[in-house]
Design a protein around this nucleic acid. Structure first.
Lengths: 196, 196
DNA sequence: TTCTAATTTAATTGT
DNA sequence: ACAATTAAATTAGT
């Protein structure tokens, strides 16, 4: 049982980053040859030292000191139940705890195998109450200034950062749905066969 | 998610110049009063948020013509066979059965109640061949750019969207299985009682 | 039941 | 700040 038919043969290193396409395989026919695929991979990772602003990494992992934060075992964080902890299935939670163990004890080992996004902030799960208030404020003002955000942060016991991101994402959502409803309006204003 | 099938323009111009925080209430306590809320335009849905990007609805429901497609009964097809008494909560299941019944017999009734069920894209069943190629590509590049995805889409006769989602889910799966295997490694490296 | 396609939304990156 | 994308967490179909 538990046949994990897929998990076994997988290479574990991945350099992501292929935003720009770059997929020019000149070969005429249908070859996704290894070459062509590898050719498509961007070498964006010269280890760019690109974005070393991850306060929470150190905040939660404050034993290390001088090595590149992006190479550290970072967030353990979301490995440890401290941070959100609530809704993993049992197995996964044990897995996570264990990983954390290992990391704590052996730290600095297999960083390489660990994904590039290690440093990602654990996803915040807003409560119903929090969302409610945020939505109410959003209705009135979708561009709250710093003072309002700070106030909200305090009231909701969240970092001001989270508030800001929330409003950003919320605006994006609103924009999207507006765009889409406009699309429908336009679409319905035309005879069916004019729109494919 | 990328909604690239819609007008890529930026039809809605925002004057987002509100640094000052409009919604700022001078009142001491936490009042975001109804008045202040109603004072604004408020055209955004009060609740569960619309997600009106569902091109396939029309594609499969091309009998109607002038009514709003979002209000139509969409895919009856996959609504019909749902008399599987499986894992919906009782209430919802009854609702479904009922709605379906009416939908079949009365078509276009009970649109409102169907809404939560309606918008979902029918699950795509990939063929063995498709999976095979996708897996092969994934092995070399788990982050294919748009070009590669388009190429795959064409080759496999799928929407590019499906490809993108497939890779997303595949990455999640890989991550999961990596976690699990790490768990096993750690587990075997420690005395039993260290693992709860 | 397990696996996975599809959805929603928090977080990241680059401009 | 926005646009586009990714990952995390869910929902739900087979």
């Amino acid at each position: 049982m538990a046949d994990r038919s897929l998990g076994s043969g997988n290479p574990t290193s991945h350099n992501h980053q292929d935003k720009s396409g770059l997929g020019e395989n000149k070969n005429a026919s249908c070859s996704f040859s290894i070459e062509s695929i590898l050719g498509m991979e961007q070498k964006k990772d010269g280890t760019p030292a690109a974005k070393p602003h991850r306060p929470w990494v150190d905040k939660w992992n404050n034993l290390g000191e001088d090595c590149n934060p992006r190479l550290r075992i970072p967030a353990m964080s979301y490995a440890v139940p401290l941070f959100h902890a609530s809704n993993y299935p049992d197995v996964e939670e044990r897995v996570l705890k264990c990983e954390n163990y290992f990391a704590v004890n052996e730290r600095l080992s297999y960083k390489r195998e660990l994904s590039w996004y290690r440093g990602r902030r654990p996803r915040t799960a807003f409560t119903r109450k929090q969302i409610e208030l945020l939505e109410n404020v959003f209705r009135v003002n979708s561009y709250p200034g710093i003072d309002v955000r700070e106030e909200l942060a305090q009231k909701l016991d969240l970092d001001e950062d989270r508030i800001q991101i929330w409003f950003q994402n919320r605006r994006a959502k609103m924009k999207r749905s507006h765009r889409e409803s406009q699309f429908l309006v336009v679409k319905n204003a035309f005879p069916q066969n004019m729109i494919k």
